[in-house]
């Protein structure tokens, strides 16, 4: 469904990604692991149109996405739930969620209430916060709003950048359960995580980035077995 070929991306003068290639099939969860600064956010951002690639191709069902703006890419069905949530702080939770559907709002004004219901079913804790300004919520609830806003875009592929970062263990568990539920519902997901064990438990495939290059990729089973390096990495992030 999504094909990334020989992707090279610069952030300023830093070559943040070198020759990255992988595929994502419909319904799969791809997990991207790697240390801080490895280029994970750059990779998701490049797919979402935030950082135009220097080289390589990003193809959605064979159609080239390179060079499209973020607002055009979300219309093609790729939605990024960015690092650090990036909510609209002074808008209500409801408005944050509804704005997630901005790109299809003109065509489908009526459907939005139904979408909101679906999101609140997924995150019941948001029900009583719908009218609160987003910045007043706890970190965990804000992350749910961020994921909900992404789902409101009704994406064909949902990209999530470290949704569990900075959250309490119990909340991390909840977020991971949500991702598992989304996978069961048939969503295609690319998930960036530092929390390797938790992430691999929902993954169909995974890849490891090191200093902008893919150093390992495969099924979670293959990855955990095949490499001492990776074991060391998992150990570090247990």
């Amino acid at each position: 469904m999504l094909t990334v070929r020989n992707l090279t991306v610069f952030r300023g003068h830093i070559q943040a990604l070198t020759d990255v290639s992988f595929d994502v099939s419909t319904g799969d969860v791809l997990v991207i692991l790697g240390a801080n600064g490895a280029g994970k956010s750059t990779l998701l951002g490049a797919i979402a149109g935030l950082y135009p690639p220097r080289n390589g191709e990003i193809l959605l069902d064979g159609a080239l996405l390179n060079g499209l703006s973020p607002e055009a890419i979300v219309r093609k069905g790729l939605c990024l739930v960015p690092e650090n949530r990036q909510l609209f702080p002074f808008l209500s939770v409801r408005d944050n969620l509804l704005l997630g559907a901005f790109h299809r709002y003109r065509r489908n004004r009526k459907g939005l209430d139904g979408d909101l219901t679906k999101i609140v079913t997924l995150f019941p804790a948001l029900q009583e916060k719908l009218n609160s300004p987003a910045h007043t919520l706890s970190g965990g609830l804000q992350q749910m709003v961020a994921i909900g806003r992404g789902l409101a875009a009704d994406p064909r592929i949902l990209l999530m950048d470290e949704p569990s970062i900075g959250l309490a263990p119990l909340v991390v568990k909840e977020i991971m359960q949500t991702i598992r539920r989304l996978k069961e519902q048939g969503h295609t997901i690319i998930l960036v995580e530092q929390n390797a064990r938790a992430a691999l438990s929902v993954a169909d495939r995974a890849l490891v980035l090191e200093r902008g290059r893919v150093t390992l990729s495969g099924t979670p089973g293959e990855l955990t077995k095949s490499s001492g390096l990776f074991t060391a990495y998992l150990g570090k992030h247990r």
């Binding site: 979300v74 990024l80 509804l98």
Partner: peptide, 24 residues
């Protein structure tokens, strides 16, 4: 209005606004 809120959203966080499809 929804459009007005989209404008405010972009005023609060331009990148996030682009990511939901608002055209700066």
């Amino acid at each position: 209005t929804f459009t007005g809120k989209a404008v405010r959203a972009a005023m609060m966080n331009r990148t996030a606004a682009q990511l939901v499809g608002i055209n700066p």
